[in-house]
């Protein structure tokens, strides 16, 4: 057979493509459940890390121990769903399969660390080259950031990729989302971030675009929870007279 003819070449490449594509599809389908499980576990570990908990060997067990509740909220703050649903939605957002912009329900995970309640929400945005994502842990007031964990798909190593560095992300702890009832979020500064102690974050040197991407991601995502936050503050004001009394005594002082 003439292996140099045009017809042979075309048929040969067509068969080759089909065989390779079929084989890869089979492999991908066969391994999918394991890969998804791995990714979900990585997300569980990130969720724990955002709340300052270093997960041990058995991540799912630690996750079960600390994360007590979960639900999804709509933009008005109405709760629905359960922990399982909330985790699946949060994990999908962190694993590229979901998109925050198009979402109508936003997952919230409730975590309990040494008796302190924390709310974990997923983050999703765009860096300089590719997607960036992460988890933010908020204190019980749903206003103060407790900690964040970020990850990225393709930021520049040594520059934008430093967004995952704990020495940088620790700046987010203690930042306030709203001021006088208005959403303000975090703000990236090129130097002198300390002039704005409640919102200011020092940018990563040499990574203006990535730093801005992080700012937009945190603010856009957390703003979606405004409705839930309002509902939360109403119910906690009504059901927690102790806290209300605390605030009054402070005023009296």
């Amino acid at each position: 057979m003439n292996t140099q003819s045009n017809g042979y070449t075309v048929v040969y490449s067509a068969i080759m493509v089909v065989v390779v594509a079929a084989a890869l599809t089979l492999v991908s389908q066969g391994l999918k459940s394991r890969q998804v499980a791995n990714e979900e576990n990585a997300n569980r570990a990130s969720i724990l890390k955002s709340a300052g908990i270093q997960p041990g060997e058995d991540v799912p067990a630690d996750f079960q121990k600390y994360v007590t509740d979960g639900f999804v909220v709509d933009k008005d703050g109405n709760k629905s769903g359960n922990l399982d649903e909330a985790f699946k939605a949060a994990s999908a957002l962190a694993s590229k399969t979901g998109k925050f912009e198009n979402a109508e329900k936003f997952p919230v995970l409730v975590l309990n660390k040494d008796g302190e309640t924390k709310y974990i929400v997923p983050l999703d945005g765009a860096g300089l080259w590719d997607r960036i994502w992460g988890f933010a842990s908020l204190k019980a007031d749903f206003n103060t950031i407790d900690g964040v964990v970020f990850d990225h798909a393709g930021e520049t190593p040594g520059l934008g990729a430093e967004m995952t560095n704990p020495n940088w992300t620790k700046q987010f702890a203690g930042k306030q989302m709203a001021e006088n009832g208005q959403f303000k979020g975090v703000k990236i500064y090129k130097g002198n971030a300390s002039s704005d102690p409640l919102h200011g974050i020092d940018a990563i040197s040499g990574s203006t675009m990535t730093s801005n991407g992080v700012e937009n991601m945190v603010n856009n995502c957390l703003e979606k929870y405004n409705g839930f936050k309002q509902k939360l503050s109403q119910t906690s004001a009504a059901s927690a007279p102790v806290a209300a009394a605390d605030c009054c005594t402070k005023v009296n002082e």
């Binding site: 890869l24 492999v27 991908s28 391994l31 394991r34 890969q35 791995n38 990714e39 576990n41 990585a42």
Partner: peptide, 11 residues
């Protein structure tokens, strides 16, 4: 193939 196997078994 190698990448898929690693993703499944050595994440």
């Amino acid at each position: 193939l190698v990448d898929q196997v690693l993703k499944a078994f050595m994440y």
